[in-house]
Write a protein that binds this DNA or RNA. Structure first.
Lengths: 362, 362
DNA sequence: GTGAAAGCGCTAACAT
DNA sequence: ATGTTAGCGCTTTCAC
């Protein structure tokens, strides 16, 4: 894309002359209360003629309500905070976009913060958001099992995103990691593979991940031995390293299930450099369903997460009408997006997305 | 990545019992002013013993200052807004991350909003941010020549990002589009290409883009005829369409300069499907310097934008110390990241990033 | 249908 | 060094 930055001549944030409710009231010849009634469409009715006068005054004066004052009075800022590890990561940027949409639909603005895989920064972000009087926080912790104590001490409604814990006393919505891994591995098995590796991402907290369980279950259920587990970061670079390690494996598997699409992309490069073709020599399935996976060569078969749906449920659980229901754990199913990297032949070179099956609940 | 969402038992935003400055004051046996002095480290000095008492009270009571009240009093929310077309686009998600970092470093929180290529939504976002008393807005408009009138009527300090206009009376910081295109095309020419196509993205506003100029200039300066221009969206899909059109070109060029990395990724797929190899049959250079371009196969030579530097300058221009300087136009140079797709042989398969040259100012 | 006024939590003069 | 207090702009109860 492009780039240029332009700025208004600065006058300092506070020197902009605020038009207040009072100015409008005076101009329209009414009281400040009436202006409020008009602006908020309540709680009292206003005569049509009066309302017209007020609206005209608002327009003429360029009045805009002061959200800070409103927030102070109401104790709610109509604002929520999002804490993610890294907005440059396609999975999280998509999630952030979906959360922003869902929040905006409910009239909430979204503070975005990155914790960059850094627990201390995550805490700082949480505190900063709490201080800013957000009405709630959606936290995608760098820890698979997030620090609940910290959250509680922040004393703020929160939704944990991207975690595999059933935190006591908390609602939860998430994806069925184990189930997703299962359908991926089962699909690989249906292609005739019997030696299937797992490329597993390592979390900051180094906790156990459901994808590992699902991979193992699928193998066991099919009476197959476990292939090697290669651990590395969830990133492209991590996948690249994992791919190189894979190439050095002694009894080299013929298939790999990778725990993220980015990792799979990295593996693709390592295999390509090693002269190993996908899917002819080695089949590969990723996890996430990111847009990038659709355009790799070969296109990447992947386990899709219902990002938008999850974002919507998370936001609604935080600030929606259903606010007062009891804690609830929502686990979303995944689905397999079949493309080329698994060995299936897709109509054209990989335009994508034949749906395979819903994941069984684990 | 993973996913699960967990939520605190809701009590409604306002029912959280606010601990106020007054509670702290009473508990510590001091006045509210002293609490302020301690919290803000000024403007008055406080005796060490008193300060200790206050800090202890703050800790014990779990006091957190109310940002809304502070914002109301001070007329500044220590908050800025970002308006981008699409946070799912890697270029913008990287930009957003960089802006967030730069803002956080200065103590500002960041509202993120997406306009989704929709001008009406962009305006709505602008108004919503203005109403929220942000101290400034960084706007990456869907229009190449953004609507200055709208911005002015919003009456809020603003920085335009990602635009090619020298808006009168506004500061500007941006990338040298024409210069970037030039170094890309010149590099292609140095590989011996004489018939070089341009894959040009189309903006919402359909305005003229400096990359087209740079491409033309480089060709003209080298005494070469202009190759075909293929217009499509800046996206992967757009690139894919462009690639298919390219394959049907009569006097088919041997090189393509694409106006975005995503477009180049799409072109890569189309060419691959058409049995045309990159760089052997056709050389390709992208624009942006996104991480994704490093992992395509072949890895993508691309014109890098100094995203982080631009974000920092933008934020600082908005809210930094230099706030009161006169309007200024900042144009950043680009540099060429040489990898495989242009025909250069890079040490390993494409680990990346030999720097070529700084762009001359256009 | 409209208005007066209290008060949300905070900052910073202005007292002491 | 510490305390008192006005007031930021808004919502809403309570009067009229």
């Amino acid at each position: 894309m492009t780039s240029i930055v332009t700025m208004t001549p600065l006058e300092g944030p506070s020197s902009r002359t605020q038009v207040t409710r009072k100015d409008v009231a005076r101009y329209a010849g009414v009281s400040t209360a009436v202006v409020s009634y008009v602006v908020n469409d309540g709680p009292k009715k206003v005569a049509p003629a009066t309302e017209a006068k007020v609206r005209e005054a608002i327009r003429l004066l360029g009045y805009r309500p002061n959200a800070a004052a409103r927030a102070l009075k109401l104790g709610s800022s109509k604002t929520i905070g999002l804490i993610i590890p890294d907005n440059s990561n396609p999975f999280f940027s998509l999630l952030a976009h979906a959360v922003e949409d869902a929040a905006a639909a409910l009239g909430y603005a979204l503070f975005m913060t990155n914790s960059d895989g850094n627990l201390a920064k995550e805490k700082r972000n949480l505190r900063s958001l709490a201080a800013r009087q957000v009405d709630g926080v959606i936290l995608s912790s760098v820890l698979l099992y997030p620090d609940l104590a910290e959250l509680e001490s922040a004393d703020i409604p929160a939704v944990l995103l991207n975690h595999a814990t059933d935190a006591a006393g908390f609602n939860s919505v998430g994806v069925d990691l184990a189930g997703g891994a299962r359908i991926a591995v089962e699909h690989l098995i249906s292609h005739g593979h019997t030696n299937i590796a797992l490329a597993m991402g390592t979390n900051t907290g180094n906790d156990f991940d459901g994808r590992e369980l699902g991979w193992r279950q699928a193998l066991t259920d099919a009476g197959l031995a476990e292939g090697p587990i290669i651990r590395s970061y969830f990133t492209r670079d991590g996948g690249y390293e994992a791919g190189k390690k894979f190439l050095r494996t002694v009894n080299r598997p013929t298939a790999i299930f990778a725990s993220s699409d980015m990792q799979a992309i990295g593996i693709l490069r390592a295999l390509s450099e090693g002269g190993v073709s996908v899917p002819e020599d080695v089949a590969l399935i990723g996890f996430d369903g990111s847009a990038e996976a659709e355009y790799s060569i070969p296109s990447l078969t992947t386990v899709e997460q219902p990002t938008r749906a999850m974002a919507e449920v998370a936001v609604r659980a935080l600030v929606g009408a259903s606010s007062d229901t009891e804690p609830e754990q929502r686990i979303f199913p995944t689905r397999l997006l079949i493309r080329r990297s698994c060995g299936c032949s897709v109509s054209n070179g990989g335009d994508s997305t034949a749906v395979h099956s819903l994941s069984p609940l684990s």
